[in-house]
Nucleic acid binder design. Sequence first.
DNA 1: CGGCTTTGACCAGCGC
DNA 2: GCGCTGGTCAAAGCCG
Length: 131
Amino acid sequence: MSEASQSRQVSMGIEEEDMDGRGFRLVLPEDGYEWRKYGQKFIKNIGKFRSYFKCQRSNCSAKKRAEWSASKPGTLRVVYEGVHTHDLPATESASSGQSGTSSSTANQYDLLTQVFGDRSSTTTSLHDDHP
DNA sequence: CGGCTTTGACCAGCGC
DNA sequence: GCGCTGGTCAAAGCCG
C-alpha cells in the first residue's frame, strides 16, 4: 500500500532488437540496477504484456514489473516492488550531477519518496486499451 | 565454459 | 464446488 509500490510510465523505453534477424529481445531503460527476467505473460484483464524482473543482488529482494501495451510498444509502464537494500551498482551513468554519492543514508528512501510524488505519470495514460 | 535468457507448466487464491 | 487468472519455478538453448 504505501510502501514498495511505485509506478512509473516511460515514454520510450521499449525497443525490439533484431537478434540474428529472428526474435526480439526486450530492452528496458537502465535504472542503474541489475534485473533478471523470470517470466513473461499476457494479461487479458488489461490486454497488455507483463514481464517480471527480480534484482540480481544477493541481499536485494527488490522486484520490478514491466507492462506494455500489446499494440503500442512505445508505452512501457515500469512498476517497482520492494526496496533495494544494497548500494547502487556501478552502472551509474545517469548520475549526471549526482555527486553526492551517497553517503547518505536514506538514499533509497529519498528516491522512493520522489517517485511516490510522481503520480503524474501514472495519470498520464491509463486508457490505452485497444483491442 | 559460464552466464543469462526464454518458454512451458504448475500452483495458489479468489469469485460466482 | 468449480473455473479462471496471475505469479513463480524449472529446464533448455544460445551467446560472448
